[in-house]
Simulated scan of single mutants.
Amino acid sequence: MSKNAVPESLNEEYYQISSDILESFSKYRPPLDIFRFKEDVARIETYYRAGGRLSKEQVEELAELTREGLIFVSRRDHPVYVKHISYQLDLVLVDKNLKEREIADIFIQALTMRLENFMEQPVRALLERLREDVMVLCEYVWNDVHRIRALTRRLHTEHTLAHHSVNCGVMGTALFIRLYADDFNRGAMQRKLFENAVMGLFLHDLGMSKIPVFLRDKTQALSRDEQSKLLSHPGTGYEMLGKLDLKDRPVEQCVMEHHERLDGSGYPQKLKGKDISPLGRLCAVVDSYCAMVTNRPYAPAKEPAQAANELAEDAKHYDSRIARLLQSLIVTGK
């Protein structure tokens, strides 16, 4: 019949899936329960149970019913659905039935998975998969910059390298949009600059992938050699960018400058003031903030407002304008 025959109230309990989503499932063994809307009685009934197998006739019928807008999956299966789409992230751009908070869940899970795989084995093939997913995020946010808000509410609370990278990528993107709000509003922001900046924010700690986990998470005082290894990670990351053929300047700035400080007390180059790029200054604020608000082996998490306030008050080390923008973002959530 028609999609208009389906009650709007169903969307509170079910996803109405599209043909694109159906085609992404295993043809004969979809990973979750599937429901059909029966127009003659105006109610949902089970069409397929996960673990079963569809016949050839059912596969053809299911495709037709989906085109008619009569096939749904339960929101109770949200974790299964999120996991499925996280492996094919571009599906979020075609699924019009997902809510913004559900899409945010999918992005966080997908990007975390990609970064875990890449940081464990930083090779070009895994970098390309990560880049594809970051570009999907850029496309999603580019079409409506306010969409980043839902992601900022879903930051990881426990510190790992991948978790920190996701948190910094998300918060950094939100802060970048705020910093250049006038350019976004006037349509003057260059798409390529935006994409490279977001990529750099997710990859800023690339060099840490070469630091042993026991050293990254050590709770005792570091020896001089251990401290030297940790301090080398921006330079290591920069060398890795060359080997990965990732030479975009915004990415390099995030990797090399996120530990530089305005008074020259940072590392590795001890840059001062305006010698640090705007993106480097932004990444420094975001990197410190995201470290402060997660539980680490050597330090408990601080409240977001407290962490943002401390950074805003530290004009000696951090760009005051950027830190105040972060402070405002944390307070308003916008």
Rank of each mutant, 00 (worst) to 15 (best):
F176R: 01
A188E: 14
L161S: 09
E102G: 08
M113R: 11
R129W: 01
Y180E: 13
E158R: 15
L127F: 15
V145Y: 05
E158L: 06
Q121H: 13
N167H: 04
M113W: 02
F194P: 00
R191S: 00
L161W: 06
L193N: 11
F176P: 00
L155S: 08
A188L: 15
R191Q: 13
V123P: 02
R178H: 14
W142P: 01
R131V: 10
S165Q: 08
M199R: 12
E116H: 05
G172I: 02
R186G: 01
M199I: 05
E100L: 11
R153V: 01
A125R: 09
S165P: 08
A162F: 02
E195C: 00
R131M: 07
D133G: 04
C138M: 11
C168E: 15
R154N: 03
E158A: 09
L161N: 05
A188N: 14
A125L: 09
N196H: 15
R147K: 15
M171S: 04
R129L: 10
H156C: 05
V198K: 13
L130P: 02
D182E: 15
I103A: 12
L115W: 09
R124F: 11
L111Q: 01
L126N: 06
T157N: 02
A150D: 12
P122Q: 03
T112D: 12
I177D: 12
C168V: 15
A104W: 02
D144M: 09
A197F: 02
L151I: 05
F184Q: 07
G169R: 05
I108M: 10
L137E: 01
L111P: 01
R124L: 11
A150V: 05
D183W: 10
M135L: 14
M189F: 06
N97G: 15
E132P: 00
Q121G: 03
A188M: 13
L155R: 12
N117Q: 09
L115F: 02
E116V: 13
N185C: 03
H164L: 14
N143G: 07
G169V: 09
L179H: 08
A125Q: 07
P122A: 08
I148R: 09
D182W: 00
